[in-house]
């Protein structure tokens, strides 16, 4: 096992976002369907479907999460945010029926992250969404943990492929633990190894030279 000196900023937990976290910045780039509740003068170029100078009231468009979150206010309605398909009633039934068969990478890949962020927008369905997120996670967690702690030197890509970003991180840390334990059992834990950072730099240098 290699100790890593580079520790990136961790993403926020639950409804919180971490300002410096790269993951959270990419998560807040996910697009949400919104409906404008007032006109936005001189910003017509943001909406490609019409040629007018302004964005008219009642336009349906997709805005990234960070912008919707910044514009959303409870008192003065500038826009209303609609739920993305995967969090709506229909999909929630699917998730409740059997969370293990769903390909969360395709649905997300930030299924849990985006779902928790959706709770910022007042919606009567919020408690149901939160409940579904939790149940989905619980339902899938056992299998994720089991495979990450027992698949040693096996091709795990088929399993990892269908995981959400959050689950992927958990899977990886389980694998690190497994590999660390195995190398301890073989008596290799005390062996000094070259830094993976250094090795990767060298790899890249070679590929840079080749055309």
């Amino acid at each position: 096992m290699n100790t890593q000196a580079y520790l990136p900023v961790q993403p926020g937990v639950g409804m919180e976002e971490n300002f410096f976290s790269l993951d959270d910045i990419l998560l807040s780039q996910e697009r949400l369907p919104v409906r404008t509740e007032c006109a936005f003068p001189r910003l017509g170029f943001l909406e490609k479907s019409s040629d007018s100078q302004d964005i008219a009231e009642g336009t349906k468009m997709e805005l990234p999460l960070w912008l919707s979150k910044g514009l959303y206010e409870r008192k003065r309605r500038i826009l209303s945010v609609e739920l993305p398909k995967v969090y709506r009633e229909g999909w929630r039934t699917v998730f409740n029926a059997d969370p293990r068969v769903v390909d969360l990478h395709k649905m997300g890949p930030y299924y849990y992250g985006l779902g928790s962020q959706m709770l910022h927008f007042d919606s009567p369905e919020n408690p149901d969404i939160a409940q579904t997120l939790l149940q989905t996670f619980i339902g899938r967690f056992r299998r994720t943990m089991d495979s990450s702690q027992n698949a040693y030197n096996e091709d795990t890509s088929a399993v990892v492929e269908r995981l959400d970003c959050l689950e992927k991180v958990l899977f990886r840390s389980g694998q690190t633990g497994l590999h660390g334990f195995q190398s301890w059992e073989k008596g290799q834990a005390s062996q000094l190894t070259a830094s993976s950072l250094v090795l990767n730099y060298r790899k890249r240098k070679i590929t840079d030279v080749q055309p």
């Binding site: 900023v9 410096f20 910045i25 910003l43 910044g70």
Partner: peptide, 23 residues
């Protein structure tokens, strides 16, 4: 509302740039 949109964008740019440099 338009001013607010641009202001959000400014904050977003600021966040991305500082996160880039910090990382």
């Amino acid at each position: 509302p338009s001013i607010k949109v641009r202001h959000c964008c400014l904050l977003r740019d600021q966040r991305c740039v500082t996160a880039y440099l910090y990382d």
